[in-house]
Amino acid sequence: MSIVVKIEEKLYQNRYIVDESRPHIRIRSEAECKSCTSQACTVCCPAACYSKNEAGTVTLVTDGCLECGTCRVICQDKENIQWDYPRGGYGISYKFG
């Protein structure tokens, strides 16, 4: 039994107030991502914000971010993720939580 999951369809149900061109999370160094053997952020992020790219590094798009903090925790040894909350009022806005 292999089920294909479309994360976009899940995130589509959520309400976001996007802070245009002010991402609250940044990757500090692309070179660090390239040398990372696991690139575990691309597996662990519950909103699939991180994806492997052709250059062998990681692309981050924070629009669907659920602000959980998992990426920061898994990348703490490399300290390659600069993680902050969005500005007040922006980001995920749970209707039910």
Binding site: M1, I3, V5, I7, K10, S38, A40, V43, C44, C45, P46, A48, T70, V73, I74
Partner: peptide, 21 residues
């Protein structure tokens, strides 16, 4: 545990979808 997700290859939403099915 995040330590387990980190070593695994299953994204959390896939795990949830498998549970639902």
């Amino acid at each position: 545990l995040i330590s387990d997700f980190k070593q695994g290859s299953v994204p959390p939403y896939k795990m949830l979808e498998d549970l639902k099915n």
